[in-house]
Amino acid sequence: MKILVFGQLTDIIGQHEYVMESIDEMKVSSLRQQLLNNYPALLGKKYLIAVNKKMADDNAKIEATDEIALLPPFSGG
């Protein structure tokens, strides 16, 4: 699945976009866990997850073809 990274999370993950190997379907909560395993510096960082440009809660399901975005607190304007 394609993962887009924004704001301060780019400092932790080191890139704006990458592809994560995924096995079939998973929940947003397991994606969060997997991200934390890969990037321990995410611990305690607040961020929302959008699936296909819509905010998704922890129970939402993700498929391998989805576009995922990691969104830390907004600071526009």
Partner: peptide
């Protein structure tokens, strides 16, 4: 409109310092 833009649009500001350094803006 201004309040909602600040709260709801996925936009991020990075405050750049003169010293070639930065920090992420917090609304």
């Amino acid at each position: 409109c201004v309040e909602r833009i600040k709260a709801e649009l996925p936009v991020w500001g990075k405050e750049i310092f003169a010293e070639n350094d930065y920090q992420w803006k917090v609304n």
